[in-house]
């Protein structure tokens, strides 16, 4: 049972790790959109919300 559990847990852990790497890559894309290429759009968003002085 221990041997089965050992290999099963390694497989599950690796799958989870790969999913996390994929999510990390997606996070980078969102970061890139929000922080760099879309900065001006976001400032317009803040302006539209009437909140250019928001502390976040």
């Amino acid at each position: 049972m221990i041997n089965f559990f050992y290999f099963f847990s390694i497989a599950v852990s690796i799958i989870f790790f790969i999913i996390m790497l994929v999510l990390l890559y997606f996070m980078w894309i969102i970061y890139d959109r929000v922080e760099t290429t879309k900065v001006n759009l976001h400032l317009r968003e803040l302006k539209a919300r009437g909140d250019l002085n928001a502390n976040d």
Binding site: M20, L23, L24, F26, M27, W28, I30, Y31, V34, E35, V39, H42, L43, L46, D56
Partner: peptide
């Protein structure tokens, strides 16, 4: 990762 994604979705965080 959860915190980083939440931060990444808001400008300047």
């Amino acid at each position: 990762l959860q915190i980083s994604i939440a931060l990444a979705s808001q400008f300047g965080q």
